[in-house]
Design a binder for these strands. Structure first.
Length: 658
DNA sequence: TTAGGGTTAG
């Protein structure tokens, strides 16, 4: 049975008047007249065929299969059947098959497209980034007087979000008001809020929200997310508390919001409230909580969330997103071994899992492992992205692997088609700088094709501190003072560099700049996880700890034992022009030393002492802790603001190069 | 058919 068009789809071919038959395709004309079949039976046959085509489309797993079904659609005379064609377009969209040519073919053939077909095309184009085509389909459907449906506008708003075109969004918003009924459609309004939020027009989103005669959970959650993305957790929280009925998604938006806005403690508090109220959690919630634990960096939190994740049945083995989040968390909570265990058991690995693991190895100084993993992912066909290269280059940088770093940097564009961004240049400046090639690093910063940012000049300034080069430091610092006038760390670094060169007048000048800007030095602060799992805080120079007397005794004993094996306090670490005696006093009360003393008193000898620090570990503390690990035979792990140092038997995993 | 997700350098 062959049919001509969707419109007359129930009319069999032999009913077509003869004068039209010459327009029919050859194969159809040549058919012999089929026997007469009653109307109801013909209809049954057609709907049977239709459902067969739909199920066949549902089973497609490749473009070739889709093409075969398309041929069948044409053969069976369904080329005007919007229902089947809509399904075809949706399948193409779902499988992310570039559909431009295909969609045009379909759209040009259909005489009377229905709103569903047009909308599927608009959505498909939009999700493939072909927004102009989306808008073209919309104008075509208007020309053909096809009335849009709510989802048409929703897809169009999404398209505007993809291309960052708020003006187009506003025009389409106008259309929703012109075309009867949509001005009050909640689904359309929600999509509009989503678009405004995505494009950063939070005020416009709020206005649409406020003017809604009624709202649903989705409207509320969209706006909450808007505030989260804008970093305004206070407004997000207010809105959340006003939300009459909260579901898992809204709760999760808050948990991840706190995690994304560097408020990990609040994220955990929210998560606990969520559990307490009996709200269900899923892998998305857990990913937010895991990320918060990673920021806290304590093994205690890592173990706590590990148990929850396992109890809920989300092991890294089965869920790639949870797995990647766990890898990152374990790396940042001092256990790169646990990170690697999680990585190994993952059944599915993607660019996120590899990049997280590479960054984890880099952070702990395992450069070779990082590089090996990078080569492995390339070999098995996982394409690295920009973030992957940051990890790989950092690994090279922290292990003085200049040549490997250079090669990888060059391969980015040549082999992987990724043009290096300013952050990659900053890694390269860091790589060269750490290796002592300060002139070359300066040259790269000055000649790179992109505008260098604070990262680039900061890397150079850091290298100048390592190699005591006040002249290049001054160049880097001048750039930094312009780019980041209020970043206290840059002033401290420059002042330290001048101090170690004995240029005390310059030190005073930097101090004056800081005073004039009203900048105050961040006090050095360290944290230690005690035997009972409590996090204790230690500030530099703080003598108010209840066990300070014991801690002081421990430090003095250590100092005497270390002096006997050749340790001398490193006065260059102090950027004050004070007496040597005063420098010694300042050095011995650095926060990491206080934490170490407490750790030695509190933590059993079989366990490592884990210390976290808010700023970079100083030279003196590094060498002090190194030797302490030798004479006490203790494993001491310090996480500073950049990376980990594993001290064991008088050696550090960073190889004294950090 | 619309809302929440993992990796980033000084």
């Amino acid at each position: 049975m062959v049919h001509l068009s969707h419109k007359f789809s129930t009319i069999p071919i032999n009913f077509i008047p003869k004068q039209f038959s010459k327009h029919l395709p050859q194969q159809i004309q040549s058919q012999t007249t089929p026997p007469f079949i009653p109307f109801s039976q013909r209809q049954n046959q057609r709907s049977l065929l239709e459902s067969q085509l739909i199920s066949a489309l549902n089973c497609c797993t490749s473009l070739t299969q889709i093409q075969q079904i398309h041929a069948r659609i044409l053969r069976k005379g369904f080329e005007q059947c919007c229902y089947v064609l809509t399904k075809l377009i949706r399948i193409l969209t779902k499988m992310e098959i570039p559909m431009d040519r295909y969609a045009k073919l379909v759209f040009n053939q259909v005489e009377n497209p229905n709103p569903f077909l047009c909308t599927a095309l608009i959505r498909g184009y939009c999700l493939q980034g072909l927004v102009k085509e989306s808008v073209f389909v919309y104008s075509e459907m208007r020309k053909k007087s096809v009335l849009p449906i709510s989802f048409t506008f929703s897809a169009l708003f999404k398209a505007c979000g993809v291309v960052n075109d708020v003006d187009l969004g506003r025009q389409i918003h106008g259309q929703t008001i012109l075309i009867g009924g949509f001005g009050f459609d909640l689904f359309v309004k929600n999509s509009l809020i989503e678009m405004y939020v995505k494009l950063g027009f939070l005020g416009c989103g709020r206005k649409v929200f406020d003017e809604l005669p009624e709202r649903d959970l989705i409207s509320w959650t969209e706006l909450i997310v808007g505030y989260v993305k804008a970093g305004d957790m206070e407004s997000a929280g207010e809105l959340f508390s006003e939300l009459p009925k909260k579901d898992m998604v809204a709760w999760t938006a808050m948990v991840t919001g706190y995690a994304q806005n560097a408020k990990p403690r609040e994220a955990l508090e929210f998560f606990e409230r969520m559990l307490h109220e009996g709200v269900e959690t899923d892998e998305v919630t857990l990913v937010g909580v895991i990320s918060a634990c990673a920021q806290l960096g304590a093994a205690k939190y890592a173990n706590w969330i590990r148990d929850i994740v396992e109890n809920l049945g989300f092991s890294p083995t089965r869920c790639v997103v949870v797995g990647s989040a766990l890898i990152d968390m374990y790396s940042k909570c001092a256990s790169v071994e646990d990170a690697y265990k999680a990585f190994k058991v993952m059944e599915e690995k993607n660019v996120f899992s590899y990049s997280s693991m590479i960054a984890g190895f880099a952070m702990h100084g395992y450069a070779y492992a990082a590089l090996e993993l990078f080569h492995e992912m390339v070999k098995i066909g996982i394409k690295p992205n920009k973030v992957t290269f940051i990890g790989v280059l950092t690994a090279c940088s922290h292990s003085r692997m200049v040549e490997q770093g250079r090669q990888i940097f060059e391969s980015m564009e040549e082999k992987f088609g990724i043009s290096p961004g300013v952050d990659h240049y900053s890694c390269m400046v860091d790589l060269l700088g750490r290796a002592g090639c300060l002139e070359e690093a300066l040259n790269l910063a000055e000649t790179m094709p992109l505008e260098p940012n604070g990262g680039v000049w900061g890397a150079l300034l850091g290298a100048c501190r390592t190699y005591s080069n006040p002249d290049i430091a001054q160049i880097a610092a001048n750039h930094l003072f312009e780019l980041e006038p209020n970043a206290i760390g840059n002033y401290i670094l420059l002042s330290n560099i001048y101090a170690s060169a004995g240029r005390w007048n310059d030190v005073l000048m930097v101090r004056k700049m800081m005073r004039e800007k009203g900048l105050r030095k961040n006090p050095g602060c360290s944290w230690l996880e005690t035997k009972k799992g409590v996090i204790q805080e230690f500030f530099a120079g703080d003598m108010s700890h209840p066990r300070y007397g014991e801690m002081k005794q421990v430090l003095e004993d250590l100092l005497n034992r270390l002096k006997a094996i050749g340790y001398q306090p490193n006065m260059n670490s102090i950027a004050y022009d004070v007496s040597d005696e005063e420098k010694r006093r300042i050095l011995i009360t650095h926060s990491e030393k206080l934490a170490l003393a407490f750790g030695l008193l509190d933590i059993n000898a079989d366990f490592p002492i884990r210390i976290m620090k808010n700023i970079r570990i100083c030279e003196d503390c590094h060498s002090f802790i190194c030797r302490v690990s030798q004479i006490t035979r203790r494993v001491i792990i310090v996480r500073d603001n950049l990376r980990f140092h594993h001290f064991h038997d008088g050696k550090c995993s960073c190889g004294n190069f950090w």
